[in-house]
Design a protein around this nucleic acid. Sequence first.
DNA 1: ACGATATGAATGAATG
DNA 2: CATTCATTCATATCGT
Lengths: 199, 199
Amino acid sequence: MVPHQQQQQQQQNQLGSNDQDSSGGDSGKGSILCRQSSTRWSPTTEQIRILKELYYNNGVRSPSGDQIQRISATLRQYGKIEGKNVFYWFQNHKARERQKTRLSSSTTHHHHVPMHKPTSSTLANNNIAPGYSPSSSSSTGVITVGQIGNFGYGSITMEKSFRECSISAYGSRTESAYSSPYDFFETKRFINGKHEEGQ
Amino acid sequence: MVPHQQQQQQQQNQLGSNDQDSSGGDSGKGSILCRQSSTRWSPTTEQIRILKELYYNNGVRSPSGDQIQRISATLRQYGKIEGKNVFYWFQNHKARERQKTRLSSSTTHHHHVPMHKPTSSTLANNNIAPGYSPSSSSSTGVITVGQIGNFGYGSITMEKSFRECSISAYGSRTESAYSSPYDFFETKRFINGKHEEGQ
DNA sequence: ACGATATGAATGAATG
DNA sequence: CATTCATTCATATCGT
């Protein structure tokens, strides 16, 4: 059964803006007419799969800017994506999970989602990036997406940092590696004119 | 072309009285009289009436957690319903109301049911379903849907007490010296100002 | 039968 | 992190 819970799945959308892929990556269910000419990101099935992998298998719930970058970089192979997309995705996913639990359970209060904590490197069997072999040996058996050796642990509470504070440690990190005209983050610099926070 | 807005609502008086099988076995949804329990929830007239009562008379627009549970519990007496149904109903109702009002900003500026907020301290009238008293049964005293708290005038306690720059990079107990939050994309306010509407 | 409309459901984006 | 807004999809029902 289970004849539902599987609705629209518009794949990526490159309506003349940026065509970076579409080489068989998704198109798995490209039967439904997807007129996603919107400005909003439409995750591809691969991207979703990876995200869920990270979420469930790695326990990633609130990735740091560092991780977000990596994740988005990896996911970019399967379609257009930006850091904020990843950020929002995790936020939403987590929020909805909680909300769902909150709205559904009334009799059973204590039944948390069965999520196992990542054992630092238990994800040896990571198959997050099918079709994409990380050049970095990866003998350790760790995903390229996540941090090698220290991701997946405690959820660093810094979500707000992205928007509110810029507590960046100014690490002269030689990011680079991107030969794309998109820089690291397409997010550009959204200079906000509002800086009021209920504190 | 006159967009007559017909408020057609299938009054499938919960043929099951209390619960419709919903067993995916029968797919006889061809008849109107028959429960077309396809996949999605079909509110009964009673449920809709109560929901609207709450919406208009009580100014309930976005019930949260507890309220949703109470409401769904009450409405469950009139048919199968889940918390998320109530949640979505209010969300959609509010959204559509707004959308409608927004769209008809020139054609016909007739007041669209100006929802009035409960003048604070007036929700004593918890009788949501006037005309028939919802059998309070005997146990679950959830009939107090009408006065599910004081919604309307900032009753929702926003506990937005969080530490902004609390990026505790704890957990990195591995060999890693310390992860430096290299880059942070600012997700604060994407002042895109771009909201094209195409339809 | 088909198109339009109505509405439940889902989710990206954003705010507080 | 919780809550909310905006869009979009999916399906049902009605009108023609």
